[in-house]
Design a protein around this nucleic acid. Structure first.
Lengths: 244, 244
DNA sequence: ACAAAAGTGTTCGAACTACACCCATGG
DNA sequence: CCATGGGTGTAGTTCGAACACTTTTGT
């Protein structure tokens, strides 16, 4: 196995959607004193790790994501690099790093990636750590500067969601228009009129209706749709907009 | 002086506009054999340098920019981090790095910033290196992976220019609407109808007309305008758009 | 039969497109 | 007086916002 680069890491902000809320995946960071059993640290962090010497950033991010979800080919996008001088030097953070054997360094810079997955179908792999989805409206205490990183990730996600069709990555392959609408509403923090939203989405030729309906719901079953990336790429146009 | 971090640098893509074209600032990278005088390297690079141990990315980028232009408070934005495994290992690149005394490293990751300045008024500082503006349509051969970095910077600049009023950073404080239109046209690679462009811009309350006209032009002098960031921040709205 | 969400159409105002002629200045 | 770019208005169309009732299913 290649050696790690001690002062460079990748952190993944893994977003999931459960048809109701936007969630983020966090791992527990817990440390107890070996003699007394006193709890020295108990908080949560994003999922991240040092890069290896023979690996670039994208590969490292994909490796981290695969280690948690078992999944390949997930939407991943680099969004920002964080290098504040003391970003890992708070007392709890230094303590934690000294207990992790690999490559302690005074200063670690990290490259942030965000990832979008449908969290109704994924199964988390635990690897001895406690791993959980948290709604972004109910976050626990976060270690390092991970609150800053998460906020920046959310900002970039919102901005990208406004201009590119990445929301579909957060839904199962087949979805209903109400699910899509709910997704836009919770991520952007807005409400849309149902008729107008449907009208807008139905104009998009890359959102393709299926001859298939929802099953097992206790109300009128909705039509299912799929997103075609191929049609999107073929038909997209650019637009100039700087808002008033 | 603090020590440099040997495996981390910041590169600045400095864009300038001269009322006609979009330009980028490059420095010459020239190396001759000490005995024979044979030219070993002669190409150009972006302006970049290692970060110091006591400095974060934004500070390093501002330092590099100041070293070239003497200017503070210039628009600077981090746009991407580059960490391909062999990004500085082409023969010419290794040779160059070995001749620079400071901190040679097998792998250097770099954080890219782009900067926007009005290149009709700035004076370049040379510090023994040859420094020049190149139109982005007529680039010379670039060292390292700087062609990739420049392309990514351009992509981000275009995308940001479409949705936020950053174009004004490329113009002098007082500008005409034709200059603004030309700027949008060359950066985005499009043409706009003059009447429609004016109508659109004049609706923006943060583009403020002055009681002042161009001087010394050999045609009807145009009215001058200023951009008010303050008004923009106060009146901006968000919009949801993913294009058809 | 009731609860729950799906599905549907019209009207109004705002914004975008296309397009051609006169004006002020310097040389 | 000529060359150069500045400045202006309208008609047609498209796009977005607001708004309420009927349908289908499971229980």
């Amino acid at each position: 196995m290649a050696k790690i680069v001690p002062n460079i890491s990748v952190d993944c902000v893994i977003f999931g959607f459960d048809f109701n809320q936007l969630n983020v995946l966090l791992v527990e960071r817990k440390l107890e004193d070996e003699q007394s059993g006193a709890v020295l640290i108990d908080d949560w962090t994003l999922t991240g790790y040092h890069i290896f010497e023979d690996e670039d950033f994208d590969t490292a991010a994909a490796r981290i994501l695969k280690g948690l979800s078992g999944l390949d080919n997930i939407y991943l996008e680099q969004f920002y690099a964080f290098g504040a001088i003391r970003r890992v030097n708070a007392p709890k953070d230094s303590l934690w790093l000294q207990h992790q054997l690999e490559g302690f360094s005074e200063r670690i810079v990290t490259v942030g990636y965000f990832s979008l997955i449908d969290n109704t179908t994924v199964t988390l792999l635990h690897n001895n750590r406690n791993v959980r989805w948290f709604p972004i409206t109910e976050l626990p205490e976060l270690g390092f500067d991970h609150k800053d990183i998460l906020e920046k990730a959310l900002e970039k996600l919102r901005s990208k969601l406004r201009s590119e069709p990445i929301g579909f990555e957060l839904l199962p392959e087949k979805f209903t228009l109400s699910q899509l609408q709910r997704l836009y509403e919770v991520v952007l923090g807005t409400k849309f009129d149902r008729r107008n939203f449907r009208k807008k989405v139905l104009q998009m030729k890359y959102v393709i209706p299926l001859d298939e309906k929802q099953k097992g719901v206790k109300h009128k079953p909705a039509q299912l749709f799929i997103f075609s990336k191929e049609v999107y790429e073929r038909t997209k146009t650019e637009r100039f907009d700087f808002s008033i």
